[in-house]
Design a protein around this nucleic acid. Structure first.
Lengths: 193, 193
DNA sequence: CATTTTATTTAACAAATGTTAAACGGTTTT
DNA sequence: AAAACCGTTTAACATTTGTTAAATAAAATG
């Protein structure tokens, strides 16, 4: 397997045991896509037909609310992203996905993914396991909205993704935390570590 | 198929086309469990080994924070629930699941579910599809925490689940919305419909 | 390197939500 | 029927976060 796939393979094998042979099934099914900072991967109105694995860089998921863009998600390094509501329903996406930093993506089309799902039980299992994990993580975030202050959410984010702060503008982080940029700035000032 | 399974079958078929024959695979794999109000389905410290489908009644998912219980989730009628982090990891659950009202549950053990997953591709596919949908719903809720006021969240909840208000104490609904009971009460007073 | 744009901070005031404590109206219990 | 309990409301005050507007800092551009 080519070096470019190392992170992806590592990610996959966390969920399902793929042998060298199992992995061959993706030959010819994936594509590489580089995005410059701020370039769009999935636009509003597009029907999302690709899933991306971030081999390098950060993507964000955002949408327009009251005329301004709100970032709902920032992808961690080496993880999957797509506009899932659109990808699943094949309807136009209200979410936009774009590159926060220069990105190297490994992408797979819906068509090819469905082929893998239908022809290799291990792929379908992988899909389920990844979705389970994403759901649990999503619930954890809801938990934090319910019980934690913005300050604690911010501290935990820094602890979990310490490198993120270097590459991601505070505006996006504020949105992710569910507060305004100015509130985040105020909050940062009062933290003594 | 027995009448008791109608809601479950309807739910399943929203995601994957199961024929009468496909459905036979659950013969002997599921159990029925009735819970009285406030009875516990999965306790803190248990290793969750069952998933429940709520044939009747409401469950809630909660945990202890600062010595008091916080309700993170209220299951809609006719949906699945388990303490997923524990179910997936086989580690003791910090989440507790109990009955808000008298409940009729259809349950399946992890063992039997894994059997279905491994032996019937349609079941694995169903698992993936349900997880996808639950993830999307979870993201929708995060969206609402980020962009909407508590009042709007409350109004939308009432609109989406109008019957829920009759059976579910406001304390749980307040937790679900991410606000205190007193704040919900204040907010209810000011709404003019 | 000067200019423009973008990111971040600051501040004063407003609005939303939390905190604490008490009251109220039903049910259930004794 | 009195007492105890549960769910909900009310109120006064505290804290957090939002809003608006401007200043400053940093980065990108010509």
């Amino acid at each position: 397997m080519p070096d470019q796939l190392n992170y992806l393979i590592e990610f996959i094998c966390k969920y399902v045991d793929f042998t060298e042979n199992d992995l061959k099934s993706i030959d010819g099914k994936i594509d590489f896509l580089n995005l410059k900072k701020n370039q769009v991967f999935i636009n509003q109105g597009d029907i999302a037909d690709r899933i991306a694995f971030t081999n390098k860089g950060y993507l964000r998921v955002y949408y327009f609310f009251d005329g301004e863009e709100i970032t709902r998600d920032i992808t961690p390094l080496h993880s999957f992203a797509t506009a899932l509501p659109s990808f699943i329903s094949k309807k136009p996406s209200y979410e936009i996905i774009s590159a926060i930093t220069d990105c190297e993506l490994i992408t797979i089309s819906r068509e090819n993914l469905e082929f893998l799902y239908s022809n290799y039980p291990k792929w379908e299992r992988l899909g389920r396991r990844i979705m389970e994990e994403m759901f649990v993580e999503s619930q954890r975030r809801i938990y934090s909205f319910i019980t934690e202050t913005a300050e604690i959410r911010y501290k935990k984010l820094l602890k979990q993704y310490p490198e993120m702060i270097h590459d991601v503008p505070l505006k996006y982080i504020a949105d992710f935390l569910g507060i305004k940029l100015q509130s985040l700035s105020r909050l940062r000032k009062t933290i003594d570590w």
